[in-house]
Write a protein that binds this DNA or RNA. Structure first.
Lengths: 195, 195, 195, 195
DNA sequence: AGTTAAGCGAGACGGTACGTCGTGTCTTGTG
DNA sequence: CACAAGACACGACGTACCGTCTCGCTTAACT
């Protein structure tokens, strides 16, 4: 990684301003959380960010691409801490995920992105990345547990992950029931081997 | 004329045509499945249904309200057949649900509706209705199982339902992994007490 | 064609109500004077008149036909009183015309009718009737004056009429200058032979 | 750089395209003459002009405001040539006015504008401008004649103008009698002092 | 120091859909 | 049949948003 292998394209002319990037992403998160994605107008966004619309489109090819990056920028990776205990690991991970959801306007962002992904394969793959990005720590947790013997050798880890995340998504998007630590506990009670 | 439980509001003026309702709903389903919700233009819809735009807006206040009703009209209830066995009941119900998903353009409809529900409380409650409508048969299945003794008396039925539907939603909307009978089997293997 | 001068069409069923005619015409004049012709909606008119829209269209084939009749009903003929003096005759006639204009919402009715007449020959001929209807008394006045010798034998009566009415129309429709008795006097000073 | 009487407002953003203005005005005249004002649809106009509807509405607040400007753009000023003779001056001016009327789709434009002016004060004042714009040359002609002594010192010039234009308007809009050089001659025979 | 290429704010632009309104016709039930 | 009520087809309206474009200015890096 030494030497800056990220090739330096002969960079001529005025370089892009980083403050501008930040201002746009910040304004995006702000606006999305206020009015939802479809309620967010690019004109309004530009005004809020103190930026020209063309400046936005120079960086992102469209609204969804912008939103998805704003989202990812706001939601860093979640480490899968290894406490040596499957249930504790899951509690930590899900607790952290919960906090992210609560602090971010995920509610109506996800649905919009999902729909956008239907007709735009770029968004499609960004969303796929994001999804995998959330599954990976869980997979690590479950695999560690299997190695430890806390889980059967033939445990269906993919389905376990689905069972862990699925109800979260379902509640956030559809039932809008509370998703809190109490719910995490009830969920794990069902999924994990009783003893 | 006895009973007359549906009071007859003295009905003045030309009554709304039922054919028109049907034509609109049918055209909506057709169009949505072809081009998605956001790709469906109300002008085009009106033309397809052989109906004036004003006639549509006389019945539904906006696009989403229409789509959600079209959806519900297309998706009748799913009976929870009582086979006397929890796993079989669930297999039947989920198998049927699977078929509905496949035959209907649910994929990008749900996300759109979920987002629309964020700023429109009418759509909100319609969606809530729909969600409960899908939960009820599962609740019946689980309660029957509990009475039968196939499930612990203190089983957390709400969470069991979340565990049953959640992964479906998650896969359809986010991972886009296959959702078939094989998956149903793996899911049930995890959820249900081994024996 | 002899006898039965008002032919009686075999008249079956419920006869048309005269109150309805009156209510419609009255409401028309009221509305037109408030919001102008193009601002008058037939739905609103029906509501004001306490009448169904179909009832209006049963009597008049369209909005303009209705308006033109409302107008004519409001503006009876103007007699050309014979005072034995040309100037006095004209003063009387124009004074009366003035009063009619002031009491009626002629201002924006005429322009609308004129335009409507461009694409509807029925309105065209109704308007023609109305125009002639206003010219006739003037023609009588001028012809009497000619017989009396107050006007040259070869006086161009058509143009004299144009000169009498034209400025009225021009001022009402375009300049919106005041049109009062003072103006009538100045007009006649120019048109009539000084002595 | 001396003088610089037209201050340059620091001009930000992309300037409005003059070609667009021209295209819109041209298409407006074309369409109006084909189908009349009320027959002209803004969608069709936009298509003809090769322009977006929003671009039209950025310049004119509504249909009438556009039409009136199209009209003014099409009808340049008429110079009041000074031939040293009142009658000849008037003949020239009216002859020219006649030509303009014939070459332009004035017929149903004026009535529509007059009505529109009733509820829109912007159109009102535009129309006023236009009216004055047509009166000015006549005023000059009559004033020159008065200075020359061809007209009494106390001649009522305002009324003379009304007498000159009024019959034109009246004939075009209401009687639809021919308005040609012959008519101009008869008109002037009546208005002007015989010798 | 001057040149050059790109970034940038502002806002015009083409396109497309939206939801509303107005006209004149049609369809009920009631007199 | 007339009538009130109101649904209906048609078609125009003016607005909103998206993503692109053109201005004139600014900001570095390369001569």
């Amino acid at each position: 990684m030494m030497m800056a292998m990220t090739e330096s394209p002969p960079r001529r002319g005025r370089p892009r301003s980083i403050e501008v990037d930040d201002a746009i992403l910040a304004a995006t998160l702000e606006l999305v959380s206020e009015v939802g994605i479809s309620g967010m107008a690019m004109d309004e966004l530009a005004k809020r960010a103190g930026v020209a619309k063309a400046t936005i489109y120079r960086r992102w090819s469209n609204k969804e691409a912008l939103v998805i990056e704003a989202l990812r920028s706001a939601m860093g990776p979640i480490e899968s801490a290894d406490t040596g205990n499957l249930r504790t690991d899951l509690e930590r991970y899900l607790g952290e995920l919960l906090g992210r959801f609560d602090r971010n306007p995920m509610n109506d962002v996800l649905p919009h992105l999902i729909e956008a992904a239907c007709h735009d394969s770029g968004i499609q793959s960004s969303l796929d990345d994001y999804v995998q990005f959330r599954r990976t720590p869980l997979r690590e947790i479950f695999e560690r547990a299997r190695e430890r013997g806390d889980l059967d050798g033939d445990a269906d880890i993919d389905v376990l992950i689905d069972l862990t995340i699925g109800p979260f998504i379902y509640r956030r998007l559809l039932t809008r029931d509370t998703v809190d630590e109490r719910f995490v506990a009830r969920l794990l009670d069902q999924i994990l081997p009783s003893r």
